[in-house]
Amino acid sequence: MQRVLVIGPCGAGKSTLATILADRLKLPLFHMDQLNWNPGWIESSKDEITSKLHDIVATDRWLIDGTYDGTLGPRLDRADTVIYLDFPISLCVRRLLKRIWTYRGRSRPDMTEGCPERFDIAFLFYLIRWNSGPRIRTEARLKGHEDKMIRLRNPDELQRWMDSLPAVA
């Protein structure tokens, strides 16, 4: 695992897993939220984020966390491993609400400084509708990349997979 993507719905634990894995595998870590958002919740342009990602994926070693469907193609093409946290949406909603409460009014570690955590009803509805929209688009993009995908359907499967990884010196 030298070029790794961690994808899945909001609240699945992508950033937490990515942080642990990047440390364990000694890979440079990039959070899509940090690449996309500028202070004050100002979104990067498509050209800006594409340029940032081009430079990252051109290197030999990286771990990128975040689904961001519009930029998934080039990342998938270069990744040697895709970890898909395909967790139940009810769990993801609970985790998202906990995250909002925990970090309310301040930026979380995987987000750009100056983007304080806040409740966003549209974002919550996006997550609630994950299975009927974003999931379908994401899985369509994954077609042809099944050979490098590790699909984990719940936290217990994730823990068993993590426990099975060999130690890295």
Rank of each mutant, 00 (worst) to 15 (best):
W62R: 01
E157D: 11
F30G: 01
I56V: 15
K148H: 00
R24C: 07
L27A: 11
I83S: 03
I89F: 05
S15V: 06
R108T: 13
T81Y: 03
M1L: 15
L96H: 02
K148I: 02
P155M: 04
K52L: 15
E117G: 09
R106T: 15
E43L: 15
H54P: 00
G40N: 12
G13A: 11
I89G: 00
L29P: 01
P9L: 05
C10G: 12
D23L: 12
N38C: 09
P88K: 06
Q2P: 02
T16D: 00
G8E: 03
G66L: 06
Y84I: 04
T67I: 05
R160Y: 05
L85P: 01
V6N: 02
A140T: 13
T102C: 11
A12H: 02
L29Y: 09
L29F: 11
P155G: 04
R153P: 05
T59P: 01
S107C: 07
V57E: 01
P28S: 14
W101F: 08
Q34F: 04
T16V: 13
S51L: 12
S107W: 02
M32P: 00
R118T: 15
D120P: 06
V57H: 02
D156K: 11
V168K: 08
G40M: 07
R3F: 07
H31C: 06
L165V: 12
V4M: 10
R106A: 10
L29I: 11
R137W: 09
F87C: 02
K26L: 11
I89Y: 01
T50G: 07
P134D: 06
G114R: 09
L17M: 11
